[in-house]
Design a binder for these strands. Structure first.
Length: 522
RNA sequence: GCGCCCGUAGCUCAGUGGACAGAGCGGCGGACUUCUAAUCCGCGGGUCGGAGGUUCGAAUCCUCCCGGGCGCACCA
């Protein structure tokens, strides 16, 4: 791999990271007088860590980068921060760490245990993450599953970073879509076909066969699916509930009347154009409910409101932030996370999804065929900026090839070792190794040490897909180590057992952050 | 027309200024008497869509162009 893994970005992204690598970076920063970012070089000859700080400083200091690097190296050695340091290439500074340092670092990881990498938020906030929020006109689809997988992982990451997070589901129980939904169910109950613009599908027939309002059973089916998908919502909010608060909200906004309608002057707050609050027929539009809803969210005391929306809603960003601003909050405290859409492919052809036609891939069906772990992994392992093409047929075959099993297998393998160690009465108790650490051991420790900064960055930048990418690297390093070295009955048994335990905890943590299980055996 | 996202290996995708651009899948060839072979090792594979620009240094930043997706309501 190439050099570009950032290991210590604590100085420019507002997080408080205190792991061994970040402390090394901090010490070097003090010497250099400028932020030092450490990377892991791709080439083993380039040391354990490297920094380009001398290249950055060269223009302002008016000295050759290699000279600056040499001075830094000398001072770092004098302070015994590193085992060896030398300038290289155009002005990089390559650092070599001792086994002692790595063993101490591993000890530190085990010392903090489950919370390794946690609590990096410099300024913990109360954050509400609103996600999914599909209207209860039908079961959740594969398309909304991405919203759920992405949003929930964001929530888990924020929470891990130390924020106080609440998950909310907002849905509409009135409006055109719901009227069509009701009309469809009622038509079936009368023994008629659903209207042309109504909803079809088996689930409509099922709802029609039940007595009473079809919405509650529909909602509980949605909630069941979400729980199965390992997502729990703290609060469920009906649009009709917030509608009563529309007048109070509008009173706080910058409004005017035009063509018998009431408008919000959102264009004065960064939006493309003004938006209608009250239609000319006197009824409030959807945007008025949004205003009331946002006001209520802030009134509940949240510092930050996160919306998770599909790319088809990206036009909403400006108007929602305008509302936040008009209601007296920073526009940036209302954050809209946009993910690109999921396109279903079947037999090589695009499959159009329409709930009304009943031509949909439901999340439950996907979970039946590929399982929760593979589904969550798959949906969150791509960048949210990337459109996903999901081939439903292929997804079934692909399960065994999904990298999620590669990562889970690493966890299960370690569990096997630890089980056997426990059977033999061997306690995990880190001790200095009896001989020099092997390359695979050093690589694995360094990999584990990447986690705090990586998790902080994933959280700060809202990029949960960085977690599975990293987890594959961890599993990679572990499988290589495992293949090359015996743990039990080896010269370095104590060190290796400790290394295994730390790796297992970290793999489990990564999987948990994306809602995937860590199996004890496979 | 305007706005947002994307274009990296045959396929699916990592990589938001640094050293020869990476992984998985697929292809070919090797490795189980061991704590799990759902693993490991090797080989092949690239005009980073194109052209300019900024920089000591660009897949990464800027401009333009080409291609694809999604939006631009007194709908929700």
């Amino acid at each position: 791999m190439t050099a570009s893994l950032r290991l210590a970005a604590a100085y420019d992204c507002g997080v408080a990271v205190t792991d061994p690598v970040s402390r090394l970076a901090a010490a070097l920063t003090e010497i250099a007088g400028a932020p030092v970012v450490l990377e892991r070089p791709g080439d083993a000859d380039h040391g354990d860590y490297a920094t380009n700080v001398a290249l950055k400083l060269a223009p302002t200091q008016g000295r050759p980068p290699r000279d600056i690097a040499a001075d830094l190296a000398a001072e770092a050695l004098r302070r015994e921060l590193v085992e060896a340091a030398e300038p290289a290439g155009p002005g990089f500074l390559n650092l070599h760490m001792s086994d002692t340092w790595l063993v101490a670092a591993l000890g530190e990881i085990l010392g903090v245990g489950e919370s390794f990498g946690a609590g990096t938020a410099a300024d913990p906030e109360r954050i509400q993450v609103e996600m999914v929020s599909a209207n209860p006109t039908g079961p959740l689809t594969v398309a909304t599953a991405r919203n759920a997988a992405y949003g929930d992982s964001i929530a888990r990451l924020l929470s891990f970073a130390g924020h106080d997070v609440e998950r909310e589901y907002y849905y509409n129980d009135a409006g055109t879509q719901m009227e069509r939904f009701y009309a469809s169910v009622e038509a079936l109950r009368r023994g008629e076909e659903p209207p042309d613009d109504g909803y079809r599908g088996e689930y409509i027939a099922e709802l029609a066969s039940l007595p009473g309002d079809p919405v509650p059973p529909m909602l509980s089916r949605i909630e069941e699916t979400l729980e199965r998908f390992r997502i729990h919502f703290d609060t469920w909010v009906l649009q009709s509930d917030v509608e009563s608060e529309i007048p109070e909200a509008i009173a706080l906004l910058d409004t005017y009347e035009h063509d018998d309608a009431v408008w919000a002057r959102t264009s004065a707050h960064g939006d493309d154009k003004d938006r209608v609050l009250i239609r000319s027929d006197g009824t409030p539009g959807y945007f008025a409910a949004d205003a009331a809803y946002i006001r209520r969210k802030y009134a509940k005391g949240f510092d930050r409101l996160v919306y998770v929306l599909g790319a088809d809603h990206h036009g909403y960003v400006g108007r929602l932030q305008a509302l936040a601003e008009m209601l007296g909050h920073s526009r940036n405290s209302l954050e809209v996370l946009i993910y690109q859409l999921v396109h279903l492919v079947e037999a090589g052809e695009a499959r159009k999804m329409s709930k009304r036609r009943g031509d949909v891939a439901f999340l439950d069906d996907l979970l039946d065929t590929i399982g929760v772990d593979a589904a969550r992994w798959y949906l969150v392992s791509r960048s949210h900026d990337q459109t996903i093409e999901l081939d439903v047929d292929l997804a079934k075959q692909r399960t065994q090839k999904n990298p999620v099993y590669y990562v889970q297998y690493a966890h299960a393998r370690i569990a096997g070792i630890l089980r056997k160690a426990a059977e033999e009465g061997i306690a995990v108790d880190l001790d200095a190794p009896g001989c020099a650490l092997a390359r695979e051991e050093r690589d694995l420790v360094k990999r584990l040490l990447e986690f705090p900064v990586l998790a902080a960055e994933a959280s700060e930048r809202r990029i949960p897909h960085a977690i599975p990418t990293y987890a594959i690297r961890v599993a990679d390093d572990f499988h290589r180590f495992y293949h090359q070295h015996r743990v039990l009955d080896s010269e370095n048994q104590k060190f290796r057992l400790a290394l295994c335990l730390a790796t297992q905890q970290l793999v489990a943590r990564c999987l948990d952050l994306i809602g995937v299980e860590a199996p004890e055996q496979m």
